[in-house]
């Protein structure tokens, strides 16, 4: 049903916490997302004209880059964006068929590809661009929070995290229960002042972003000399002069 039901008692609010301070914009999370999900729950993720001039395809995770601020305080921020698994997602309530739904037990927002009519209304209702239409299959697709990894008992326990989280070389992505205030991710959000995107839409996103830390403007003493010794003049002389210097120095 696309009507939202109250979360079950003790249910989880699974989501991601993305650290904009440490993200280096390498796109590895997007690539691993594509790799896993093109064989996963919503497989395949099509690519059209993949080797041509107008390549396009379905991705669940895209890395944007912004500049924030002016002058010395400005900062280049790499900005990964995927489904935020909102608590009151309009993408679910606008669905006319019930194909779009939010799981009561963990809050993951999914699409049932067998009942989706491909009307695209859910993608219009999402301000975050989390949903992408698969023109090949005629249905809407979106991030599943790697539902086929996080509960997958065939994987080692430490691998039961979304593909984007497992692959991040900068550990900028964290996965956990944001409904539990004592979870690692909730503590991280509290500690770093994590925020939600476009709160004015009132979709109550579960995912949180951690702001870039303030840039250092002063350098502390590291014990190094303030200035390096000047290199010996010999090092920059002509080979002939260097030979003369060597001879005369005897």
């Amino acid at each position: 049903m696309t009507s939202l039901t109250a979360p079950l008692p003790g249910s989880k609010k699974l989501g991601l916490v993305i650290d904009l301070d440490t993200c280096v914009g390498c796109h590895a999370c997007a690539v691993n997302c594509k790799e896993w999900n093109t064989g996963g729950h919503s497989a395949p993720l099509p690519d059209f004209d993949p080797y041509g001039a107008n390549v396009s395809g379905v991705w669940f995770n895209r890395i944007h880059t912004f500049e924030a601020g002016e002058g010395d305080s400005s900062r280049t921020v790499h900005f990964p964006k995927s489904c935020l698994h909102c608590e009151t997602p309009a993408c679910v309530t606008v669905c006319p068929t019930g194909a779009s739904f939010k799981r009561a037990e963990d809050g993951i927002v999914l699409v049932n590809p067998d009942t989706c009519i491909g009307c695209k209304l859910c993608s219009w209702a999402c301000p975050y661009g989390a949903r992408e239409f698969d023109a090949d299959e005629g249905v809407m697709k979106k991030c599943t929070l790697c539902i086929d990894r996080i509960y997958n008992e065939n994987l080692a326990e430490n691998e039961r995290v979304p593909a984007c989280v497992s692959t991040c070389p900068a550990s900028a992505r964290h996965f956990g229960d944001l409904g539990d205030p004592s979870s690692d991710v909730s503590r991280l959000v509290a500690e770093r002042g994590g925020f939600a995107l476009m709160p004015e839409m009132e979709y109550a996103p579960v995912n949180r972003y951690l702001p870039p830390r303030a840039a250092k403007t002063a350098v502390g003493c590291t014990g190094a000399k303030a200035e390096l010794d000047r290199p010996a003049d010999a090092a920059v002389l002509h080979p002939l002069l260097r030979w003369m210097d060597k001879v005369l120095s005897r």
Binding site: L20, H64, T65, F66, E67, A68, G69, E70, S73, S74, R75, T76, V77, F79, P127, F195, A196, L197, M198, P199, E200, Y209, P211, P212
Partner: peptide, 15 residues
């Protein structure tokens, strides 16, 4: 508001 980076100032799209 879309990026939550307004506290740093104006946000410009780079890439």
């Amino acid at each position: 508001s879309a990026t939550g980076l307004g506290a740093r100032g104006k946000v410009r799209f780079l890439d």
